[in-house]
């Protein structure tokens, strides 16, 4: 029983950073920005989270700094891709590489360590214990006692779905992606909408980074995002940006990642490392079949 609970908890915490970054990515996806910089934004967020938490002795400042750090990356993206109209793909790659180099450099300069910075002075984001839910047998250990960011993520999923599909901003956001000239001709600047989408993406990637370095573990290590931003990009494209779909894909990915580790009892580890990717491919297969049926 313990193992199942552990697997589910592992799934939730494995999915959270991917899900947050992917939700950020979905705003830019709808706005028609080909944004691949989630990886870099997340990594920058993770670094500044540790920086803020360590120097201000407060996890809240950690989150604030993470968002500021990630927003700086988003602003660079805005400056180049939206204002100066450079190629989004190239800009994204540049940002990702820049984030990796810059965080590594700053860690070495500021904390005087290489590789990983772990220190008791870093204040982690607390877990939230919900008194009533905790008493439910089995489920109690899953519903209660999760990290604060995880509850925020649930809210963000609902909010994102609401904003994108039910509000005027959401309508304009989608219009900016589908048909920017007609949006512009109706008197709403599509560039402005894109800027807002990138700012939202920056905030959410900052949260994702803060969860990685202050929630899941309490340290910063070089390249600690470890490809999660790319997975989130895949999640966005896989389900055409639908927030609920993204949540499912992220959970599936988190689950299979943990499952891969668990299966090592029965299979060679090189094989189990493939599990998340094979599962993603299978999901992609079924999704595209569904999508075809809907079209027909």
């Amino acid at each position: 029983m313990n193992i199942i609970t552990g697997l589910i908890n592992g799934m939730i915490s494995g999915a959270t950073p991917i899900l947050l970054a992917a939700l950020g990515g979905t705003f830019t996806f709808y706005a028609g920005v080909f944004n691949i910089a989630m990886e870099g934004m997340m990594l920058t967020g993770a670094f500044f989270a540790v920086l803020g938490s360590y120097y201000f002795d407060s996890w809240l400042m950690g989150i604030v700094c993470a968002i500021i750090g990630s927003l700086m990356m988003a602003l660079i993206f805005i400056l180049f891709a939206v204002t100066l109209k450079t190629d989004e793909f190239v800009t994204g790659i540049a940002l990702n590489l820049f984030a990796l180099g810059a965080t590594t450099y700053m860690m070495r300069q500021i904390f005087n360590v290489k590789g990983a910075f772990s220190n008791p002075g870093i204040v982690p984001i607390p877990r939230i214990h919900i008194p009533l839910l905790a008493k439910i047998p089995i489920l109690g250990n899953i519903l209660s006692g999760q990290n604060l960011i995880i509850y925020i993520t649930v809210l963000v999923v609902i909010l994102s779905a609401f904003i994108i599909f039910k509000t005027r901003f959401g309508l304009r956001l989608r219009a900016a992606g589908y048909n920017a000239p007609s949006l512009d001709s109706s008197g709403v600047s599509s560039a402005k909408i894109r800027i807002w989408s990138l700012i939202i993406c920056g905030v959410l990637c900052g949260l994702a980074g803060a969860f990685l370095s202050l929630g899941y573990v309490t340290l910063f290590s070089e390249n600690m995002s470890a490809g999660r931003g790319w997975i989130s990009l895949a999640a966005v494209i896989l389900v055409n940006g639908n927030p609920w779909g993204i949540a499912l894909i992220s959970l599936l990915f988190g689950f299979t990642d943990g499952l891969g580790l668990l299966l090592q009892q029965y299979m060679p580890s090189q094989f189990t490392s493939m599990v998340p990717y094979v599962a993603t491919l299978i999901a992609l297969y079924f999704y595209s079949i569904q999508a075809r049926k809907r079209k027909a």
């Binding site: 592992g10 915490s13 494995g14 590789g115 990983a116 990685l212 899941y216 573990v217 340290l219 290590s221 070089e222 390249n223 600690m224 470890a226 990642d257 943990g258 580790l261």
Partner: peptide, 8 residues
């Protein structure tokens, strides 16, 4: 270098 996976 994936500390999160190590923890999991």
């Amino acid at each position: 270098d994936d500390t999160a996976k190590g923890k999991q």
